[in-house]
Write a protein that binds this DNA or RNA. Sequence first.
DNA 1: TGAAGAATTTAGACGGGGCTAAAGTACAAA
DNA 2: TTTGTACTTTAGCCCCGTCTAAATTCTTCA
Lengths: 224, 224
Amino acid sequence: MTYTLAEEDYLKAIYKIAERHGTPVSTSAIAELMQTRPASVTDMLKKLADKELIDYKRYHGVSLTRTGARQATLLIRKHRLWECFLVDKLGFSWDEVHEIAEQLEHIQSDTLIDRLDDYLENPKFDPHGDPIPDASGAYRMRYQILLSDLGLHKPAVLVGVREHASSFLQYLDQNRLALGATLEVVEVLPYDGSVRLRLGDGEPILISGQVARQLYVRQTTESA
Amino acid sequence: MTYTLAEEDYLKAIYKIAERHGTPVSTSAIAELMQTRPASVTDMLKKLADKELIDYKRYHGVSLTRTGARQATLLIRKHRLWECFLVDKLGFSWDEVHEIAEQLEHIQSDTLIDRLDDYLENPKFDPHGDPIPDASGAYRMRYQILLSDLGLHKPAVLVGVREHASSFLQYLDQNRLALGATLEVVEVLPYDGSVRLRLGDGEPILISGQVARQLYVRQTTESA
DNA sequence: TGAAGAATTTAGACGGGGCTAAAGTACAAA
DNA sequence: TTTGTACTTTAGCCCCGTCTAAATTCTTCA
């Protein structure tokens, strides 16, 4: 089976929304994510349903079928592997790669993507800390929590970002918040939920609660 | 300026035909190369002419404008750089890369292609021996002649192929005819123009005149 | 010069994917 | 239970790139 560019984009959008907000996925949610009109979404949903990539009941949203989910996962695999390539091999920074990977993920060739995977030495996470599915579509979620849910004085490592906007990633760069950074919450300001962090062994920095809710961390053992 | 996939394909086709058979390029030649109908070609030619990518006079064929030619060479640059990547980095063989590069060449990002160029260490020729234009679209033709035009007992090196079909490339592989191979014509059979070659210092092999007309060689100095 | 035959273009249609405007459905609040 | 509002779908249109069938133009040769 080979799908059109638009079909692939819809499958990925549905997958992402379902991942975040659960199923069923509404027409308007898809329209908003894809920067398109609800009427256009409805048209495409019919086509995807005809191809048995989604389960669709009029007025009641959609969910991916097994086939649809598999296809979406493979797209995500391709997207994330290409992001690794762009960052690790070509020297792009993590805020520059999304649009390019968005194009590269549509290249049709199973051999290509498997060889790329090997060439990159089978990375398990992409430059934003998102897990990369294997060729069968399987991947394991890393143990992670939002920085905003991390208690005081618990050593942790920054492992992922929830928000992928360039401006956000650049903000993190400017504040030395890179994946793998060790950190610890020193204080949470009650007024607005801002968080004071110690990064590595440097001076504490202040980030907004808004930012803290976009960062995934993994607690490290006290001894580490 | 950004062009659609179909427009890019047409520009490249026109460029290739013009390169081989000169200008003007006929509607039917384009249709044949692109596996499409002459009527479809005519439609697209009007659009390309409106965008000033080609000079088009009804019933009299087309030629690329400066802008069109520039766009075509950039596509060829992308195609050939991706072929290098696939062969040199991912381990594909030269008969497997065309279709994949055909997709990759449409990825839109100047930065990407320039970084890829650097990553590959600015190759001047692709895996088939075709020259790679630089970012400005310029490239130098290598001195080369067809093997069928090489005289007897002149040492030469195989530098390129005129035919890119997988089956042809595989045939070359099976006969150890790789780019860079040194060779010398031992005999030309008068009956059908078959050529007996000494390859390196091995036993002579026989290839058809048909094949000899698809191989580019460069003469080496006697002393080499 | 004037057809015949080949090449090319036009006319009209179609599927993919998108849009607007209008109509239909669901659901929460009264 | 009814009704207002938000959401979704339908109807009808558009552009892109392709096609077939028919008409046109070029070219060549008698």
